[in-house]
Amino acid sequence: MRPILLSGHERALTQVKFSKEGDFIFSVSKDHVVCAWYSANGERFGTYHGHQGALWTVDVNPTTTLLATGGADSTMRLWDVKTGKLLKTWDYLTSIKRVEFSEDGKQLLGVTEKRTGQLSNIYVYDIINDVDAEQTSEPSLHIVVDELPRVTVAGFSYLNKYIITGHEDGSIAQWDAKTGEMLNNVYSHEDGMLVSDLQWSADRTYFITSSKDKTAKLHDTNTLEVLKTYVADTPLNSAAITPDPQQYVILGGGQAAMDVTTTSARQGKFEARFYHKIFEEEVGRVRGHFGPLNYVAVDPTGKCYCSGGEDGYVRVHHFDPPYFDFKYEVERERERGKF
């Protein structure tokens, strides 16, 4: 496969997201600009201007009409995907580390950073899926995370039932998305190792978390039970689950940016790692970035994946036949009807 290199950013990428149909890629970086790309050929569709600080996070709603971003200028913004018009700005006291639309696109959550005496907050807004509508300024739910350490990642479960958060100390928490009550809290990653990413399976009944403890773990949404563990040899920044029928997870990471200059690309382990989702075994790697991979995202239709790196590039990879054909012997046997 020939990767397509998207070089619209001048600084390190922080997050990349696919639209639901996989035709668009949205990327944010520390250079204040949001870029939208066509995934098929790497053509840039446009840019969204307005943020005054580094951007940490981006998400698009299921209909690819609204785009939410959050960054170090302590604002969360809502954009019209088509025209690039800024529709709404929510102001906070600290920067926004994570935004995510719910499965149905009717709710949007934002996570503020714990800093300068401020606690981590989770804000949930009801969103009207209409670019001309006036969006609300009042959160429908506001959770102040005072008992747990800083929230790094968060997301909506299936049917907006729970909000799952990942924390600085490696713990995962489950909250009721209606009342804001904390339901469960588990320490699945090594103590003190930050949870760097949380991504959902297609039906949001399970999710994968990556951590600086060099592992990624598959969790059950209801019980927070660890279903699978994928062990890597480098701190992980991101983990993604490929949609069915392919059974992979893709992990991205690498040494921290500050250590990069002293190591070569190979030693730096700047590769996307493919693990078999069920057998927890590494099956391959994809090289290319000159810095750690800050985010990996998979096309919801399963045809490609992209990674955003510290080197300022987004690399889009359209999978080749071997990716689709690969199966373990037991999988083949099951297909032949032996089991």
Binding site: M1, R2, P3, G42, H276, G284, H317, F319, Y328
Partner: peptide, 19 residues
């Protein structure tokens, strides 16, 4: 200026991959 093609990468999943 924004989009370039990278070098071809051969990616083939294998059982028992070792770095």
């Amino acid at each position: 200026d924004t989009t370039t093609l990278g070098e071809n990468i051969i990616f083939k999943p294998v059982i028992g991959f070792k770095s």
